[in-house]
Design a protein around this nucleic acid. Structure first.
Length: 469
RNA sequence: GGCGUGGUAGCCAAGUGGUUAGGCAGGGGUCUGCAAAACCUCGGACACCGGUUCGAAUCCGGUCCACGCCUCCA
């Protein structure tokens, strides 16, 4: 079996081969920290998380870099509006970002470089671009990259610049450039920037947007690395510009595989503030949904497809996750039984692992991978019903689930709810009432327990208490 | 105008020439003092029109619809 990805660069499914055997350098475009991130942003981070986990599952040692853009037009504008200095403004949102990814069960990257800490590296790249004739100083004293000097420009987005008509969005204030499509490497200080500026060979100013990713990726992963990802809207111009400036500067190939995830839409419409369907993670948490439920919904669609986010869909995840929890509770209860079912179980595990792996290796086909798990769960349930699993076989099944959950990051095999003493007492009282055949009391206690957020399940082997989500 | 994606059951969502995808919701059943939960089970589908083929949801042509990007939005 082999790992395959759809490479935006070639628009084909390609077998993945890392530059250095067994190791992968992965650069994932991160947040601009001027606001709380919304679920659309998190779709990208969850996709990148699944990618990272899949690479590890396939045996690679992953070095992931995710940038934090902490200086740009929006961070400057909003920090000034709030009367805060840039650092204290952005640090609030950096903290929120890390809280949010933890809520969603996203594994931490190895590096989270901040743009403001890498200005020196950016200046070096810009200097080399000026030296090599790819960049020039415009009439407004900003430094621009001249795309006509880089014949390969458009290789990622597959755009032929000759055929482009300048849109209305090309604003009149960008008169410093020789050509409208040229992009800023260094923006000369203007009054609206306030005290946000760095000294450079071209005077006070701040970096353009694209240059930070080139500087930070090359610093941490080298001039040439394996995978670069982001949302599809970043493909052009952001990633196109990164390729141009990086390759022009080093003369080397920048990135081998470019992976882009599609947008999330809400109730069939683009998410936007004006439509009132704009959700941040904390909005949803406040509405009572869990990070696990949100993760499950968002990861369950293939990353290159539009994902239609609906509250019906989100509520549906609660049922399936509860079913999974119940499955593991049941399986763990069988650990203390005597060993049985080994051969059948080994075969089932081998078959499922094959299906799971082929699915996930096929450009991260998570839907098919999940289907293999559901089919597996159904078979194990049948075996459990038939009392054909116990001891070591149960342990093997649990270990297998722990193993595939290194990719899903959502099964929560170990989940155990600590039952409060007062609930336990009520459960005991109810059992006694039932033994006494005092069903009125038993039912009243059950209702009280339910009202306190717990659920009783009477099984052949005893009584289980689980938390109601 | 250019580049690109998609339309699969009530909803979400894989598949891409022949063999049950899967999940949620719904029906039926097992279990139960009654429930709940769980488990088993069932139905229902490939936007439309042509074509290629023994065979098309899948390939080709056309039509309709939806969506994304085309200068800083994941």
């Amino acid at each position: 079996m082999s790992l395959k990805f759809y490479n935006t660069l070639t628009r084909t499914l390609e077998e993945f081969k890392s530059i250095e055997p067994g190791k992968v350098g992965l650069y994932t475009c991160g947040p601009t920290v001027y606001n709380y991130a919304h679920i659309g942003n998190f779709r990208a981070y969850i996709f990148e998380d699944i990618l990272r986990r899949t690479l590890k599952y396939c045996g690679y040692q992953v070095t992931q870099v995710m940038n934090l853009t902490d200086v740009d037009d929006k961070t400057i504008r909003d920090s000034r509006e709030r009367g805060m200095d840039l650092d204290s403004f952005t640090s609030e949102y950096k903290k929120a970002f890390f809280n949010d990814i933890e809520t969603l069960g996203i594994e931490k990257a190895e590096h989270y470089p901040e743009a403001t800490k890498h200005i020196g590296g950016m200046i070096k790249i810009i200097e080399s671009l000026i030296d090599k004739g790819f960049a020039y100083i415009g009439d407004d004293s900003s430094v621009y990259f001249s795309i006509e000097k880089f014949p390969n420009y458009g290789c990622l987005a597959h755009i032929d610049m000759e055929g482009q008509r300048p849109g209305a969005r090309v604003s009149a204030d960008e008169y410093g450039k020789e050509s409208v499509a040229d992009f800023a490497l260094w923006k000369h200080w203007v009054e609206d920037d306030g005290d946000v500026f760095w000294e450079s060979p071209w005077g006070r100013g701040r970096p353009g947007w694209h240059i930070e990713c080139s500087a930070m990726s090359m610093t941490l992963l080298g001039n040439h690395f394996d995978i670069h990802t982001g949302g599809i809207d970043n493909m052009f111009p952001h990633h196109e510009d990164e390729i141009a400036q990086s390759e022009a500067s080093t003369g080397e190939k920048f990135v081998n595989y470019w992976l882009h995830c599609s947008h999330l839409i809400v109730n069939g419409e683009k998410m936007s503030k004006s439509l009132g369907n704009f959700h941040t993670l904390r909005d949803l948490i406040d509405k009572g949904y869990s990070g696990r439920e949100i993760r499950w919904l968002i990861m369950s669609a293939h990353y290159r497809q539009h994902l239609n986010f609906t509250f019906d869909g989100l509520s549906g995840t609660r049922s399936v996750l509860q079913r999974i929890d119940e499955f593991f509770i049941r399986l763990k209860e069988l650990l203390k039984e005597s060993d049985q079912g080994d051969d059948k179980v080994k075969e089932l595990i081998a078959d499922t692992e094959f299906r799971f792996r082929s699915s996930i290796e096929d450009d991260l086909n998570i839907s098919a991978a999940l289907a293999s798990f559901f089919d597996f769960m159904k078979e194990v349930n049948k075996l459990m019903d038939a009392k054909k699993i116990g001891g070591a076989a149960a342990e093997d099944l649990l270990n297998f689930c722990r193993n595939i959950d290194t990719v899903f990051g959502a099964l929560q095999v170990e989940k155990e709810d600590e039952v409060p003493a007062d609930i336990l007492q009520m459960v005991e009282d109810r059992i006694q009432a039932r033994t006494d055949r005092d069903f009125a009391t038993a039912d009243r206690l059950r209702d009280e327990i339910t009202a306190k957020g717990w659920k009783i399940e009477d099984t052949a082997k005893g009584h289980r208490v689980v938390r109601i989500n």
